[in-house]
Design a protein around this nucleic acid. Structure first.
Lengths: 249, 249
DNA sequence: CAGTGGTCTAGACCACCAC
DNA sequence: TGGTGGTCTAGACCACTGC
């Protein structure tokens, strides 16, 4: 029994949306809504292609995109199955501002520093620019419900985009970068913990010695350029990182 | 000038290795060894296909696999470029044992608990099994150079594989799972920090109140089954997490 | 306008798996 | 042995980019 037979799949050849994408969206929706149950075997690609009036490579492209997303699994000689359980989709490259907003936490930002400064050796290495070259330097305090959550220190290449303090106070850095036409691709992160110094504690409203989460991140755009280097400290009592890692294939 | 022209690319049609894979490996090696420099434009796909005696879809498949790895970027109307800079490949789903070994830290494991126990509500939810069902329970102390690094508490479905204490003391859990034919696919992780309790401090050789890194993880195999749930605490003074996140596409 | 990648077709043969 | 996905071909037309 082919569970896709009862699914009313169809494609619109007059749509500008690619056929394989139309199909993959419909299959994904069917999985999400439980029409295709975990573990169930899809019918074979040839029949599916014939039923939709598509070629097999097109159907394969649709299925492959869902395999890449971790929703389907193919087994040679067996067939294509819906993945067994609750694998959620990988989180986006996380933006603290968006995370807080999604959680209904009413994020706010206080910009402490917004200037240009020569790149230190560490910053230059991270951004791939010569040491001493002018870079954008931003320091912000991120608040939720009026309480400090994190202290964010960021460096960006100078002429990448202009960042006005007003913009920084009303939205997140990633959103500004995307709006400037920068396509974010990946980020290299390092997460650790340490005791708050007196100054750090004061900024975040915690006593000296309190555990803080620390994160360093270099973000790359789709051409591989480093577009941001950040050093952040978070109140561990109020924040933790959640994300999904994939095994490289 | 097509930089791939001077590359001596070739494929062996008698090899069992897929043609697209042979090509992608050669291109990757050329990038890695600097034969293809960052930002350089590859020749177009049609010519490359003709030169190698392959069809265009096959060449596209090779190129696409490198795009997925973040080594190449395609631009419609422009061409295919080598990514600009130092984007390292995503880390594998990290194994503390392997990380330590790779860093020359001579990891060792002391198995504290290796038994079966009924699943608590939390464990049952994580593994997707009924509450109260017997699961494997392991507690380990991970050492490097004889110093405690982390305290690892893990739960696994009962009949997944058998874990002997001797094996657990000589290698990592992930390696044992792979050896048992389990294909790890992804993991959902949560990383935070907190002050060590007295008991935790004693286990790890740190005073009470010291910042500890905490990690909770559910690991899934390629069929989407949860195969492991772990709650780990790390000495923040000796360990931090490093990984790469990709933007979902 | 010419050149590029993006999409699509209608076939083909092979390797692997379950029966 | 039959059915599945894995790979591959030799074309085609379109959309976008840069000149």
């Amino acid at each position: 029994m082919d569970p896709t037979a009862s699914l009313q799949l169809s494609v619109d050849r007059n749509s500008p949306v690619p056929l394989y994408f139309q199909l993959s969206q419909q299959l994904e929706a069917a999985i999400e809504h439980g029409m295709l149950t975990p573990g169930s075997l899809l019918g074979n690609e040839i029949d599916l292609a014939a039923r939709l009036g598509l070629s097999r490579p097109t159907v394969r492209q649709a299925i492959q995109s869902l395999v890449d997303k971790g929703l389907l699994v193919r087994r040679r000689g067996v067939g294509t199955q819906v993945v067994h359980s609750q694998v959620k989709r990988p989180l986006e490259l996380s933006s603290l501002y968006d995370d807080l907003e999604a959680a209904g936490q009413r994020p706010a930002t206080r910009v402490l520093v917004n200037t240009f400064a020569p790149a230190s050796a560490e910053v230059a290495a991270a951004l791939g620019v010569p040491e001493g070259m002018e870079v954008h330097r931003i320091e912000r305090l991120r608040l939720a419900h009026g309480e400090p959550m994190a202290y964010l220190c960021n460096f960006l290449p100078k002429d990448l985009l202009d960042l006005r303090t007003g913009q920084l106070e009303s939205t997140g850095l990633y959103r500004l970068m995307r709006a400037a036409g920068i396509t974010l691709h990946s980020a290299r992160q390092s997460i650790g913990a340490r005791a708050a110094t007196e100054a750090e504690g004061e900024r975040l409203g915690e006593p000296e010695g309190t555990p803080l989460l620390t994160m360093q991140r270099i973000t790359f755009d789709d051409t591989g350029r480093a577009v941001e280097f950040g050093t952040h400290t978070y109140r561990a009592s109020r924040y933790s990182f959640e994300f999904q890692l994939l095994v490289r294939s």
